[in-house]
Amino acid sequence: SELMNSSKLIRMLEEDGWRLVRVTGSAHHFKHPKKPGLVTVPHPKKDLPIGTVKSIQKSAGL
């Protein structure tokens, strides 16, 4: 199965306009000026399962 580095996923979010608002432990929480909701990324993780990545991307509207 495909894995993604959390840094790469965070870069994709930031390029889309998401900004880090809070860190709780290894959970990084992002908000967007125009899009609704809060997106949480486990970080640092070298090997996020593709299912997790897809669900984060979906929440972020990517």
Rank of each mutant, 00 (worst) to 15 (best):
V39W: 01
T24I: 11
A60T: 03
S55F: 09
S55T: 08
P44D: 04
K34C: 14
S59M: 11
K34H: 13
V21G: 03
K8N: 15
F30C: 01
L48D: 01
E15R: 08
N5Q: 14
S7K: 09
Q57R: 09
S7C: 14
S26G: 08
W18I: 00
A27I: 11
G25S: 12
K46D: 15
L9T: 02
H28A: 12
L20G: 03
K35M: 03
S7W: 13
H32A: 00
K45V: 15
K31I: 15
H32C: 02
G17I: 00
P49Q: 07
V53T: 06
V39S: 01
L48V: 09
I56P: 01
E2C: 10
E15N: 09
L3Q: 13
Q57A: 10
W18P: 00
S7G: 12
G37C: 07
G17K: 03
K58M: 11
S6E: 02
W18H: 00
P36N: 09
E14G: 05
P42M: 06
P42I: 06
P42V: 04
V23E: 10
A60L: 04
A60D: 02
D47M: 10
K46L: 15
L13D: 00
R11S: 14
P33S: 08
W18C: 00
T24R: 10
K31L: 13
L38Q: 09
G51C: 12
A27P: 01
V39E: 01
G37Q: 06
S1L: 09
E15G: 07
L48Y: 02
G61W: 03
V41I: 06
L48N: 02
G25M: 12
L13W: 01
L3C: 12
K58I: 12
S6N: 02
L3H: 12
E14D: 05
G37M: 04
D16T: 04
P36L: 07
N5L: 07
K8F: 13
E2S: 09
P42R: 04
H28D: 02
I56M: 02
T24Q: 09
P49I: 03
R19P: 00
L3S: 14
P33R: 09
P44R: 04
V23Q: 10
E15P: 00
A27W: 12
S26V: 12
R11N: 12
T52E: 09
S26H: 11
P44M: 04
R11M: 12
K35L: 04
S59R: 11
E2P: 08
R19G: 07
L48A: 02
Q57H: 07
H29C: 10
E14H: 10
G61N: 06
K45I: 08
H43F: 04
I10C: 05
R11P: 02
D47Y: 14
A60C: 03
P49M: 06
T52P: 02
T52Y: 07
L62A: 04
K58Y: 06
I56Q: 02
G61E: 05
L20Y: 02
E14W: 10
G17S: 03
G25R: 14
L62Y: 02
V53N: 02
T40Y: 11
W18M: 00
P42W: 03
S55P: 02
H29D: 11
W18L: 00
L62N: 03
G61Q: 08
L9Y: 02
V53D: 02
S6I: 03
V41L: 05
L3W: 07
V21Y: 12
K45C: 15
G25Y: 10
T24M: 09
L38C: 13
A27G: 08
T40G: 06
M12T: 07
D47F: 13
K31Y: 08
L20D: 02
G61K: 04
K34G: 08
K34Q: 13
V21R: 04
L13A: 01
T52H: 07
V41P: 00
V41D: 00
P33K: 08
D47C: 12
T52K: 09
K31N: 08
L9I: 11
K31A: 11
I10L: 04
I56C: 02
L20C: 15
H29Y: 09
E14Q: 09
E14I: 11
H28K: 06
I56F: 01
S1G: 13
K31M: 13
M4H: 09
I10T: 02
H32K: 01
L3Y: 09
G17N: 05
G17M: 03
G17R: 02
S26T: 10
D16H: 07
S55W: 08
S7N: 10
I10D: 01
L38D: 07
G25D: 15
K8T: 15
P42Y: 05
R19H: 09
F30Q: 00
V23S: 09
M4N: 09
P49N: 09
T24S: 13
D16F: 05
D47L: 09
G61I: 02
M12Q: 10
K34D: 13
G17C: 06
P49W: 05
H32R: 01
L3V: 13
K46V: 15
S55H: 14
I50R: 07
V23H: 06
P42C: 05
S26R: 10
G17F: 02
P49G: 09
G37K: 05
P49E: 08
S1Y: 03
G17P: 00
M12S: 06
L38E: 12
G17L: 03
G17W: 02
H28M: 07
P42H: 05
S26Q: 13
P42L: 06
L20V: 11
